[in-house]
Nucleic acid binder design. Structure first.
Length: 434
DNA sequence: TCTGGGGTCCTAGGACCC
DNA sequence: TCTGGGGTCCTAGGACCC
């Protein structure tokens, strides 16, 4: 048995903990450059604002509906997430942190009333952290996700589902007829693993509700859509195919990509941007104790704008695996120079580190006595760099490139953030509505 | 006229998730 | 004027081998 517990409108709820005046106010949290809405309060959802909708399209609600847009503060959300996860872990013996705002809990061997237990944990998170959550319980992860969706929807839209499923929904406890009714009332596109494209194909084939999908022929599903949808279907039937990953695996790739605040046409600012991305990616890489074997760099124009389009990427192999930001930046610049073309307005660039491996393993294969002195020096330098940035803030020191002629960014933000950033310590977190 | 067949590895691209 | 930033997994098809 699995539970899925997640924070409602997570980023928006985090902001409200520190700005209680925003309770009941329609609000969104904005991505980098204040470009898109990446979280919406219920009131903002009621205005019809979609996930990832551009801010300029909804800005008019500031005047007409009192909408508030806040610049994202991801350091804060990560911190709040850690606290929420540590309390959520109390639900059962194993936990898989699935994203910044949700975790699966393995409930094997947990005695007593699961719904009551979930309500207690939920209440504790609300009291101690100030974040409202919902819990879905079911025999498979896909059904637990579905149960969570039902718990949230039953709370937000009264009448959509039986009221006693709000906030905490245990699908395993429902009588068969109620279970069927709930699956009939849920659109197939709400299922975890069914995106817009396959959702549309299913509806076009007359498969509209989750109940319709459950009753399809397994072989037919497999032959038309493949093993992924087949697995989803089996999970919906209660056959557990996806296991709980409670030991977080190291990442297989690390990316740092950004849209620019304004179009960039020249090579030097692109070199500057790509150097910084490589440095940031290197920092993440060292954080998981890894080395990269390849660097991918890409640039592209904006698909939303008229004019000539260009999008290209290239993979640059490294002579030997490394976590040295300078080597990563050199490779990224080399790749950039090979794909850069004049005459385009670039809107986005990025660096990805590929073929990651464990630094310990790599080192074990080397004879330490023959390890080049430069490697040791590089390791020390990078460790110092990470320590300074950790202490004084991200990017206080970063890798510069020879193309850089000005001390300040030439590719960065179009405008100042709408709202200032702040950081927290445990002591700063109010006991919400105690 | 007729032009093997099976296996592996790699890569690019698609689809999905939050 | 202004359009997110990460990730994962699967598949198809090409290259190559015997």
């Amino acid at each position: 048995m699995f539970a899925l517990i997640d924070g409602n409108n997570f980023y928006a709820s985090c902001e409200r903990v520190f700005r209680p005046a925003l309770q009941g106010v329609p609000m969104v949290v904005l991505s980098n450059n204040d470009g898109c809405c990446v979280a919406r309060s219920n009131e903002a959802k009621d205005l019809g604002i979609k996930m990832a909708q551009p801010w300029f399209e909804v800005k008019h609600f500031e005047q007409s509906a009192g909408l508030v847009g806040l610049s994202a503060n991801f350091v804060l959300y990560g911190d709040m997430s850690d606290r929420m996860m540590s309390l959520a872990a109390g639900l059962g013996p194993t936990q898989e942190v699935y994203s910044i705002d949700e975790s699966f809990i393995g409930l094997h061997g947990v005695p007593g009333d699961l719904v009551h237990r979930s309500r207690c944990v939920r209440e504790r998170i609300l009291q101690w952290i100030g974040i409202p959550t919902c819990v879905g319980i079911a025999p498979t992860k896909t059904l637990a996700k579905l149960a969570n969706h039902i718990a949230k929807t039953a709370e937000r839209k009264p009448g959509s589902y039986p009221g006693d499923l709000a906030q905490v929904c245990n699908l395993a406890a429902l009588p068969a007829s109620d279970f069927e009714a709930v699956l009939r009332a849920t659109e197939v596109g709400e299922v975890w693993g069914i995106g817009p494209r396959i959702g549309r194909q299913l509806v076009d084939s007359g498969v509209c509700s989750v109940w319709d999908l459950v009753n399809m022929d397994v072989a037919a599903v497999r032959s038309r859509w493949g093993v992924v949808l087949e697995r989803t279907m089996r999970e919906l039937r209660g056959q557990s195919c996806i296991t709980l990953d409670d030991a977080a695996e190291p990442k297989q790739q690390i990316a740092c990509t950004r849209s620019f605040g304004r179009a960039v046409a020249d090579l030097p600012p692109l070199i500057e941007a790509v150097s910084e991305f490589a440095g940031r990616a290197g920092e993440k890489l060292r954080g998981q104790g890894g080395l990269a074997g390849q660097v991918l760099v890409f640039i592209r124009t904006s698909p939303f704008r008229q004019g000539p389009q260009y999008s290209r990427s290239v993979v640059v192999p490294l002579r030997r695996p490394t976590a040295d930001s300078r080597a990563l930046a050199r490779a990224a610049i080399k790749g950039l120079s090979s794909i850069y073309r004049e005459g385009f307005d670039y809107a986005k660039a990025g660096v990805m580190l590929l073929e990651l491996q464990d630094a310990e393993v790599e080192q074990g294969e080397l004879d330490l006595a023959t390890e080049p002195e430069e490697t040791r020096d590089a390791n020390r330098l990078m460790a110092a760099l990470d320590a300074v940035n950790g202490r004084f803030g991200k990017g206080v020191i970063h890798v510069a490139s020879t193309g850089q002629t000005k001390p300040k960014r030439t590719w960065g933000m179009r405008q100042e953030r709408r709202t200032p950033q702040y950081t927290t310590r445990w002591a700063d977190v109010p006991l919400a509505r105690a």
